[in-house]
């Protein structure tokens, strides 16, 4: 911290060491605090992401406080006297210091990057992203075509502005996503119009849904509860209202739900956009600027709800 290593000033060294120790303590505490800044952990990815974030918060807090300490010290102690216009001692640089403060950040960020890469690998979230014809993904309204998909995955269809979830094995479709606890799930993400973002904050996972591609995406829910799925890639007028609920059930409840759902007739699913669009049409003159018309609500077995209290 001190650029002039002339005769070693014992009290200064002790004071700086104590201060650094204090900063390390504070940084560690902030790093632990950072776990509370997130929603509940509801997938196997969440602890890994939160752990990495806590690690980076600890380092980041230390760097920030160290810089702030130097600045505060300089502002308090190295201020020119009033009317003192003289120059300070001209220190033009120090190659040794330059090397140190190039090397330390380099090592730090590389350590973080390697840590992050390991997290990436162990998550293995992302599967293949095959190109598909959009015309093939666009299916007529009216339930789930059971013959086209691999049986073990859940198809997520994003539209302007609704989410539809299709369970090929059970022949069920819904506008509320149900998942079994502690079971790895593979999603097949497709969009019928524009880019959308499949984002469940409690799972710490997000993947853009891209028209013209089918993207495979894996996760494992680890906590029973009701969570929010939000559209994370701007998709037009009702982007903000394009939310669905994700319900993580126990194995038994999940199977029961599937069985119950399969017996239900098709009905209109949830689309807040359609509701708001109808209200908009009632008003004269039509408020605001031009908008794309929302797609009709998907025909599903279970509309579910997106208005119940959610855990995150």
């Amino acid at each position: 911290m001190t650029p002039s290593p002339s005769p070693i000033n014992r009290p200064a060294v002790v004071a700086v060491s104590l201060w650094v120790g204090l900063l390390i303590g504070i940084s560690r505490w902030v790093g632990l605090q950072s776990y509370h800044w997130f929603p509940v952990q509801a997938s196997n990815a969440a602890p890994l992401v939160d752990g990495l974030f806590s690690f980076e918060t600890t380092i980041g807090t230390f760097v920030f406080l160290a810089v702030a300490s130097v600045m505060a010290w300089v502002i308090l102690r190295h201020r020119a006297e009033k009317y003192d216009a003289s120059d300070a001692e001209p220190i033009e640089g120090n190659t040794k210091l330059e090397i140190i403060w190039t090397a330390i950040p380099f090592v730090l960020v590389m350590a973080i990057a390697v840590y992050a890469m390991k997290v990436n690998t162990s998550l293995g979230v992302l599967g293949p992203m095959e190109h598909i014809h959009l015309a093939d993904a666009r299916e007529q309204q009216g339930g789930y075509p059971g013959d086209r998909l691999p049986a073990e995955s859940i198809e997520v269809v994003a539209r302007q502005w609704s989410w539809e979830f299709r369970y090929p094995e059970a022949g069920v479709s819904s506008t509320e996503l149900h998942l079994p606890l502690d079971q790895p799930v593979t999603f097949r993400l497709v969009s019928e119009d524009v880019l959308h973002g499949f984002y469940i904050p409690a799972f710490r996972l997000k993947q853009d849904v891209i028209p013209g591609r089918a993207i495979n995406f894996n996760l494992t829910p680890t906590r029973i509860g009701r969570y929010r799925l939000r559209d994370s890639q701007f998709s037009g007028t009702w982007f903000a209202a394009n939310q669905a609920d994700v319900v993580v059930d126990s194995q038994d409840d999940y199977q029961a739900w599937l069985k119950q759902a399969a017996a239900l007739p098709l009905q209109a699913g949830i689309s807040d956009a359609v509701v708001e669009y109808q209200q908009r049409l009632q008003q004269t003159p039509t408020p605001g600027w031009a908008t794309v018309k929302p797609a009709p609500p998907p025909q599903v077995n279970v509309p579910g709800s997106n208005a119940l209290p959610h855990d995150a």
Partner: peptide, 9 residues
């Protein structure tokens, strides 16, 4: 930081 250190701010 090296510049402001021990300067006459």
């Amino acid at each position: 930081l090296g510049t402001i250190w021990r300067g006459k701010l």
